[in-house]
């Protein structure tokens, strides 16, 4: 187990280094940072002085090492646009995105798994057919279309829910949460549903496919032949086996959700990191973009590692090998 974790950690470091290099190259090559920082009438000497101060005279590998060193200390530089430390801006926006992704994941799992089981047990039933048809629409409709349609229905026509923003938030230390107010929850509903829809259908289809296969397996047939009740076979025995790949996909998709959140946050003007990134792109605010890239890379790597560990916890075969 320890060996496995260390191997994983090594891979994670490599991935982070690669992503770091990418974001470093972005900062260095997209535009001239000196050009965007100095006054327009700055002299050549002033520019050179700034260049030296920013370390841009050093050889590229040294610059990269310094960049990584600073990033590890949480220093991603200063935003070109509003002259504030990038790290500070990200931390500020982090809670909004994470709360959105958390609720979307819970929604996707809570609805997707039971639907998957039901459609697997009765693959030809009316419910299964209906759900399959709807899920096809869910998979193939782009997020921004579902978002806009939901706004049209619930915010514009029915006027039940707000169409943008986070509602009222409560500050818990540096974390601002929308979970503690009614308006926060109302504001969360539409964006999280929009974000969850794709994952929900994905999880449903995955659970369905896995369940159908596992229900044909020898050990389920053996359980049936031993007269165990249907309900136990479906929800206790088979589901546990079917959830193994769901675990992997969900873990990876959380990373995907954070990335997808860019679209959802734009549609709902959700003040999260995705919106921050889109705004940074519009203003060519390279340090923010680079930091966002690093952050998303880190999240993906961390989630993957987490999934691996959870896998070992759920599946006894991965814990200690070998027959006794």
């Amino acid at each position: 187990m320890a060996r496995f974790l260390i191997k994983r950690l090594g891979q994670a470091v490599l991935v982070i280094l690669a992503v770091g290099l990418l974001s470093f190259l972005m900062v260095r090559t997209v535009g001239d940072p000196v050009q965007s920082m100095v006054r327009e009438d700055a002299t050549v000497a002033e520019r050179a002085a700034l260049r030296a101060r920013l370390g841009l005279d050093d050889p590229v590998p040294i610059q990269f090492a310094k960049y990584l060193g600073r990033a590890m200390q949480g220093d991603f530089g200063i935003s070109y646009r509003n002259q504030r430390p990038v790290a500070e801006m990200i931390v500020e926006r982090l809670p909004a995105t994470l709360e959105l992704v958390l609720v979307a994941t819970v929604l996707a799992l809570a609805i997707g798994i039971p639907l998957g089981v039901i459609t697997a047990i009765r693959p030809r039933g009316p419910l299964a057919n209906g759900v399959q048809a709807v899920s096809l629409v869910g998979v193939s409709t782009p997020t921004f279309v579902t978002g806009i349609l939901l706004i049209l229905l619930f915010a514009v026509t029915l006027r039940w829910l707000p169409s943008f923003g986070r509602g009222e938030t409560v500050e818990l230390g540096w974390w601002s949460t929308g979970f503690l107010t009614l308006s926060g929850w109302r504001a969360l509903l539409l964006p999280s549903l929009t974000l969850a829809l794709f994952q929900m259908t994905l999880i449903m289809r995955l659970v369905r496919a896995e369940m159908i296969e596992i229900l044909q397996s020898d050990y389920i047939r053996f359980a049936r032949a031993r007269g165990l009740p249907q309900h136990d076979i479906h929800y206790r025995l088979a589901l546990k086996n079917a959830l193994m790949p769901v675990l992997t996909i969900t873990g990876m998709q959380i990373g995907g959700l954070i990335a997808f959140a860019i679209v959802t946050e734009t549609v709902f003007q959700w003040p999260g990191m995705g919106l921050l990134f889109i705004q940074a792109v519009q203003f060519a605010d390279v340090p923010v973009m680079a930091a966002y890239l690093m952050f998303v890379g880190l999240v993906f790597v961390a989630l993957n590692a987490l999934v691996d560990v959870t896998y070992a916890v759920v599946d006894p075969r991965l814990r200690t090998g070998g027959a006794a």
Partner: peptide
């Protein structure tokens, strides 16, 4: 009745590698 199978009539499966659910003791 749900008790016929397993209690009155039972079965020994062929392949012990696949007949037991790997995730349960």
């Amino acid at each position: 009745t749900t008790h016929t199978r397993g209690r009155d009539v039972s079965v020994i499966f062929q392949d012990p590698q696949t007949a037991l659910n790997p995730l349960f003791t």
